[in-house]
């Protein structure tokens, strides 16, 4: 199976450790991973901020870069949701503007082939126990796009529960938004910070050492809040937990999440 990693522009630039973890994990599971060097950004920030027309060339670029692969895996719920939920909408809106079905046709092939990491693991590979070892107390925050747009359901939880050494503790108010919301975080900083703070307080109440999510954008916001407050809780991407094995000392994986 020819599988492409769509890492996302944020992870590529700021969280390369998450990318390395996905590669390590998938390789261990026998998947041949390619990273097309021409990849950049799915266009989500443009679209969600009101620059739909600015997002179109990025969506075309994505379709061009990834069109030839059987599956595209991304460790980001919101970028997966952009492709799966909003690329069809880009096409439909273009048609409604009298530009015909061309954009929809160009984008259509990559839509069903794009998987968020946990979907790919559970639905495509059919694994829940990925052979990971991660000796920490962890609480999990289901991000909004993963939860409500993609409907990831209990996939992340099942994957985490199968990790050896990991103690999973329930996050109170788990389904509430963390307050990141892309440009919302800077356009409405007070409300965003208040939401982040409540999320962090809830995480603290669990006694967890790690706050896990499947999207580094939310973790950037929460991690930044946690380190400012010196909570001692480390943010960690789910991929980095799943990549960890007994052979790792633990330090490598942790560093990647920060």
């Amino acid at each position: 199976m020819r599988v492409a990693l769509f890492l996302t522009c944020v992870n590529d630039t700021l969280y390369p450790g998450t990318g390395r973890a996905v590669v390590k994990l998938l390789t261990r599971l026998g998947v041949e991973v390619d990273f097309p060097m021409a990849q950049t950004c799915c266009g989500q920030a443009h679209y969600n901020t009101g620059y739909r027309h600015g997002a179109e060339p990025l969506a075309r670029h994505y379709a061009e870069v990834f069109g030839g692969y059987e599956a595209i895996v991304t460790p980001s719920g919101s970028c997966a949701a952009m492709v799966r939920e909003l690329y069809p909408r880009l096409g439909a809106r273009a048609a409604a503007e009298g530009r015909g079905g061309e954009l929809a046709r160009v984008l259509a092939p990559v839509v069903p082939k794009t998987y968020e990491l946990t979907e790919f693991l559970v639905d495509v590979l059919g694994v829940v126990d990925v052979g990971a070892y991660y000796p920490h107390r962890v609480t999990y925050h289901p991000t909004c796009h993963g939860l409500r747009s993609l409907g990831l359901g209990d996939r992340p939880r099942r994957l985490l529960e199968a990790v050896r050494g990991l103690e999973l503790v329930e996050l109170p108010g788990a389904e509430e938004c963390c307050g990141f919301g892309g440009t919302f975080a800077v356009k409405n900083p007070d409300v965003s910070a208040a939401m982040g703070l409540d999320k962090v307080r809830n995480a603290e109440s669990t006694g967890a050492e790690r706050l896990c999510a499947a999207d580094n954008s939310c973790l950037m916001h929460l991690g930044g809040t946690m380190s400012r407050l010196r909570t001692g809780i480390e943010p960690v991407h789910l991929a980095e937990i799943l990549a960890g094995t007994a052979a790792d000392t633990g330090g490598d994986i942790e560093e990647a999440g920060v």
């Binding site: 890492l7 992870n11 590529d12 630039t13 700021l14 969280y15 390369p16 450790g17 990318g19 390395r20 990273f35 060097m37 900083p189 910070a193 982040g196 703070l197 950037m220 916001h221 991690g223 930044g224 809040t225 380190s227 400012r228 920060v258």
Partner: peptide, 13 residues
Amino acid sequence: SRELPEVPRESFR
């Protein structure tokens, strides 16, 4: 209200 993320030594690409 939030620290900025640290830029890594090397990008993934």
